[in-house]
Amino acid sequence: MALAIDDVRRVAQLARLRIEDAQAAPMLAELNTILHLIGEMQAVDTSGVEPMSHPRDVAQRLRADEITEPDRRAALLALAPRAEAGLYLVPKVIE
């Protein structure tokens, strides 16, 4: 499977990355190299091998359902470019 230039633009759009036209062609070549490698790996017979979702072979540890985090609103809001009335302010978005 090989990508076309439109796939590169679409993936970039989904990832909110700006790709200039001059960058799109080299990017396409690089992505296709990666896909080629994946193609080679997919050719390996993996029947009977359990799919791996994490490289470490241990299970998730759980925490007790307790409230441990204090209110740090002032400190966290101070990190934002703009805040008001206890809210983070962002450019207007209406879906």
Binding site: Q60, R61, L62, R63, A64, D65, E69, D71, R72, R73, L76, L77, L79, A85, G86, L87, Y88
Partner: peptide, 23 residues
């Protein structure tokens, strides 16, 4: 009150890690 129950993990500061609630 807004944002008084949103800690470093909830606001996604770099370097934080999620830990799953058993309940």
């Amino acid at each position: 009150e807004p944002n008084t129950q949103a800690c470093e993990i909830d606001v996604a500061l770099p370097g934080v890690l999620p830990v799953l609630n058993a309940r």
